[in-house]
Amino acid sequence: MSLKGIDQILKKFEYRESAIIAILQEVQEKQNYLPEKDLEYISEKLPIPLTRIYRIASFYNAFSLKPRGKHIISVCLGTACHVRGAPMVLDRLKLELGIDIGEMTEDGLFSLETVNCLGACAMGPIVVFGKEYHGQMTPARVESAIKKYKKTSKE
């Protein structure tokens, strides 16, 4: 993220240390992860020690310190989704994308993650592409879903 962009976010939160989580969320919003130099810049501007920011950023699962793809694919592995076949969907996703859990495809389009429950068990197995929820997923539907997102990101 540009330093100007970070400045704007910091200004919006009036440089309050207590707003650090909200600040990190907004910084992450744009690029799906928190780059080292952005965190250093925030620590300098607030100003709070870098360790305090890393402590928070490494604690919450919502934050990533590793680059993630444009579309984050989250496969629900909660009990309900699990018994409805989520592991098979996950295996198919791994195969189609050629990556393991927590990795990003080489073209930077997709990252694969697992979650423990999305609170919509009736729709299971659920896979979330970015912010779109896909219920009743099957291994067969994985391919078409990926294709769709590949297409939309080309446009």
Binding site: E36, P49, L50, T51, Y54, R55, F59
Partner: peptide, 24 residues
């Protein structure tokens, strides 16, 4: 504040940011 807790749960540990060579 050169070091702090990092991570959570079973992978929690103490260390500098990026886990090496704390600049402060």
């Amino acid at each position: 504040e050169a070091i702090s807790f990092l991570g959570r749960g079973s992978s929690r540990k103490v260390g500098p940011p990026l886990e090496i060579n704390p600049q402060t």
